[in-house]
Amino acid sequence: MKIKELNEILNFELLTTCPDSEIVTAYTSDLLSDVMGNAPDDSVLITIQAHKNTIAVASLAGINAVILCNNRKAPEDMLPAAEKEEIAVLSTGLNQFDTSIAVGRALELCK
């Protein structure tokens, strides 16, 4: 599913331009070393780590979009980094659990 289609279902706030990449699955984590080691390719990262380093790790791990939970604000230097790496950044007021469920449903990975 394209990021654009995914967000049409989720309706989260899109903070960057929307790259034309595919999302196959999702990964929920706030530990960047964990994301680096375990996140699957073409996934969306669900996290509260609103940080420039999150983009760096996402790019290494083949993550195409990052969803910031609990209304965490993206710091100034995070969004330009995301644009450069062509990673979409979205924001929601939901916590990591509820976001995971919403994304899981949208991707038809759970009921």
């Binding site: 999702a26 990964y27 929920t28 984590s29 990591q96 995971s100 469920i101 994304v103 899981g104």
Partner: peptide
């Protein structure tokens, strides 16, 4: 399981 998959599984159980 990963955190994402665990959340999805627990949610299905809740449902």
């Amino acid at each position: 399981s990963s955190m994402f998959k665990s959340c999805a599984a627990v949610h299905s159980l809740m449902n």
